[in-house]
Simulated scan of single mutants.
Amino acid sequence: MGKAGKALKRVLETYNISQNRLAVTMGLNRSTVYQWFNEITDPSAESVTQIIAALEQLNEAAAKEFVLLYLGRIAQPEPEQPED
């Protein structure tokens, strides 16, 4: 399976966040998080954004690390270009 499950597993273990706690924060069944965590299924793009939002509520550093592991970089907004 994909990169999201690996990133999620590492972050939850590193920051001592249980699968159940993430599931409750996201309003999901624990089995869904279990499937991502164990790379049985991949989260959808929409679910990835929900994972990030839930991790931000639980531990901001965990959310940043998830984004870094998943995307390979920290997402930064594009700087605005001055108009000519």
Rank of each mutant, 00 (worst) to 15 (best):
G27Q: 03
A4T: 04
T49A: 10
V33S: 06
L8I: 04
T49W: 03
T14E: 15
S31N: 14
I40P: 12
K3A: 09
N29T: 10
Y34I: 02
W36D: 11
E56I: 13
E46A: 13
T41Y: 05
N16F: 12
N38C: 05
Q19L: 04
A4L: 09
V11M: 12
I17M: 06
I51N: 05
K6Y: 03
K9L: 03
W36V: 13
V33E: 09
K6V: 08
S18T: 12
A7L: 06
T32L: 02
M26W: 01
M1R: 10
I51D: 06
V24E: 02
V48K: 00
I40S: 02
W36I: 15
V33I: 02
M26S: 07
K9F: 06
R21Q: 11
A7T: 12
S47G: 03
L28K: 12
N20C: 07
L55V: 02
S18A: 02
S47I: 06
V24Q: 03
E46G: 13
R21T: 15
E13D: 14
A45M: 12
R21G: 04
V11R: 09
V11Q: 07
L8M: 06
S18L: 04
I51A: 00
S44I: 11
N16T: 12
E39F: 08
R10M: 13
G5N: 00
F37L: 01
T49N: 11
E56H: 12
T32V: 07
E39V: 10
T14F: 12
Q19K: 15
K3S: 08
N38H: 11
S31G: 12
N38G: 08
F37W: 07
T32W: 02
E56M: 13
T14M: 15
A7Y: 11
V48N: 05
A54V: 00
Q50L: 13
R10A: 13
A4Y: 05
S47F: 07
R10P: 05
E56K: 07
G2Q: 06
M26T: 04
I51S: 05
Q50P: 08
V11A: 09
T14K: 15
N16W: 03
N20W: 13
G2S: 14
K3R: 14
A4H: 03
N16P: 01
L12D: 00
Y34V: 07
Q19S: 00
S31W: 01
N29A: 11
Q19A: 08
L22E: 10
D42V: 11
A53Y: 09
T14W: 10
P43A: 07
Q35S: 14
E46C: 05
A53I: 02
W36Q: 06
V11D: 06
L22Y: 06
R21H: 11
N20E: 12
T41A: 01
L28C: 05
W36F: 15
P43Y: 01
N16R: 14
G27F: 08
S18C: 11
R30N: 00
P43S: 03
M26Y: 09
L22D: 11
S47K: 05
F37H: 11
D42P: 02
R10N: 14
Q50F: 07
E46Y: 09
G5M: 04
K6S: 08
